[in-house]
Design a protein around this nucleic acid. Structure first.
Length: 469
RNA sequence: GGUCCCUUCGUCUAGUGGUUAGGACGCUGGCCUCUCACGCCGGUAACACGGGUUCGAAUCCCGUAGGGAUCACCA
């Protein structure tokens, strides 16, 4: 086959939600896997509902996900001339006709049909009138009165539609603008799209598009309809199920690689593998393993995957993504802070970047603010006997590596006979203010000598002051 | 309601005629341990139902039920 050309055609009427992101992802991955092209197209023929803000939101979401496109974004609103040309062709060849029925007429028609138990479809009043160019008339596609239209779906298999089930749908509104089915078909055709992967809420539209292709004697693209993403109650995903917008996940501290991993895995599989890097996804993605049934969006699993990606990502890749969250918490690391070392102490214990930022705060906060209960319990006068000799030794260290840091502790343990378990917790409180933190040695190494010593000194005077008062 | 699609643990899924039906998330018992975690070992739990076809069905066929999508001069 020729080079694979796929596309993602969002309509700019809102943010990019996770379902849409998954569709984009499938198309993008398939194109990348096949060495093909991925085209971005903005479907803004509905000038009423389309907004510039939505376009920007969608674009930035895709960028955040690191889904890049080879061509576009194309805007349907700038291609009206092309649609006009094809609409005219359709009229000229007798595949479409002008219709002067008003929306009110149609509404009445529907009502009547419903009442008599019939199907609410256009009755064909203008179908054989053969009107010439008519002002303020919509244009309808002339659907065959009999026969079937087959959609050879590469995911679901052949789907057969009776043409009698379709009505003469409008391809151009009375103001001359094209409608969705027309614009999609013409765009896919003229952009040489040969593989269309989209949500299965489009299945019922597809025969209309196929009919347009056939009327224009154009070869069909391959269609693949992927099952939808559902909410926890198995209905279409909506706000009441929780966050939908991909930017919300960005803001909640998810890594784009984790979101991608989760979304692809929801509806596609590669044996038992759960964790995929972006490159693995590109390498292994295929259409054969896309599932046929709808899937429920599960934030828990997304978070588990996010934790895995945080664990395995290189700390230097995490740094820029963590920064905004630190800033948000009014925390501004200095040049001297070793962020990568800090991240290494946190990446095994953070499910999101927000958690990581929270866990990192103590590294930067000077002086240490003690949790009252923790200080009460651990920063006692007995601890002074351990603390003083410990600081002295730590101060003298030149090699501040994690391994070498164990020595001062060992020495103090030898002198005092106190077990490590009794030393670690007070030290932890002295250094972090609380009782929860990364391991003592890795934490001290990441904190650095200067902060470590000053914090231990701070604890020393804190204890002494407390004794006095 | 018409049309179309779907149906393996609570959830995501592996499975393509013969498996003790596997993995992951969740929940849970234990181990590890300087706190919290990570990790490791174990447990929990599924083939919607009914008929066929077959020596043998989660796997093939037909029904039933349930769920979803869609029926615009929206996309």
């Amino acid at each position: 086959m020729d080079q694979i050309i796929t596309r993602f055609p969002p309509s700019p009427t809102g943010y990019l939600h996770v379902g849409g992101a998954r569709t984009a992802l499938f198309n993008w991955l398939y194109a990348r896997n096949q060495g093909g092209k991925f085209i971005l197209r903005i479907e803004d023929t509905d000038t009423e509902r389309s907004t510039k803000e939505s376009v920007d939101a969608i674009l930035s979401s895709l960028e955040w996900l690191e889904i890049d496109w080879d061509e576009g974004p194309f805007f349907q609103s700038q291609r009206f001339d092309i649609y006009k040309e094809y609409i005219q062709k359709l009229v000229d060849s007798g595949h479409a006709y002008y219709c002067t029925c008003s929306p009110e007429d149609i509404e009445a028609m529907r009502k009547k049909a419903m009442e008599s138990g019939g199907k609410p479809k256009y009755d064909g009043t203008c179908r054989e009138k053969n009107m010439k160019t008519t002002k303020n008339a919509a244009i309808r596609f002339k659907v065959p009165l009999s026969g079937t239209t087959v959609l050879p779906d590469i995911i679901k298999g052949n789907i057969v539609f009776q043409n009698t089930e379709l009505d003469d749908f409008i391809i151009a509104r009375s103001d001359g603008t094209p409608t969705y089915n027309l614009a999609v078909a013409i765009d896919d055709m003229t952009m040489n799209i040969n593989t269309v992967i989209r949500g299965d809420d489009h299945v019922n539209n597809t025969p209309k598009q196929i009919l347009i292709y056939k009327a224009l004697k154009h070869e069909l693209p391959r269609y693949g309809h992927v099952p939808m993403v559902l909410g926890s109650d198995r209905t279409r995903l909506s706000k009441r199920h929780g966050a939908m917008s991909v930017t919300e996940y960005r803001d909640m501290g998810y890594l784009p690689d984790a979101v991608i991993n989760y979304l692809v895995r929801l509806g596609w599989s590669h044996g038992d593998q759960e964790f995929f890097t972006r490159d693995e996804l590109i390498q292994k993605f295929n259409i054969e393993n896309i599932g046929r049934s709808a899937g429920v969006f599960d934030v828990n699993k997304l978070m588990a995957l996010n934790a895995n990606h945080i664990q395995t990502a290189e700390p230097r890749k995490i740094t820029p993504r963590l920064m905004p969250f630190l800033t948000q918490k009014n925390c501004h690391p200095e040049q001297t802070d070793d962020l990568e070392a800090i991240i290494k102490t946190l990446n095994q214990r953070s499910k999101t970047l927000i958690e990581m930022a929270d866990g990192a705060l103590f590294y930067f906060k000077e002086p240490v603010e003690y949790d009252e209960k923790a200080a009460q319990k651990f920063l006692s006068t007995e601890f002074l006997d351990i603390l003083v000799p410990l600081v002295e030794r730590i101060e003298k260290l030149t090699d501040f590596s994690e391994k070498n840091l164990e020595n001062p502790f060992k020495e103090v343990m030898d002198i005092t006979g106190v077990k490590f378990g009794k030393i670690a917790q007070p030290v932890r409180v002295a250094l972090t203010g609380g009782t929860v933190s990364p391991g003592i040695f890795e934490m001290i190494a990441a904190l650095g000598k200067k902060k470590t010593v000053s914090r231990l000194r701070q604890a020393e005077s804190y204890i002494k002051n407390r004794v006095k008062s």
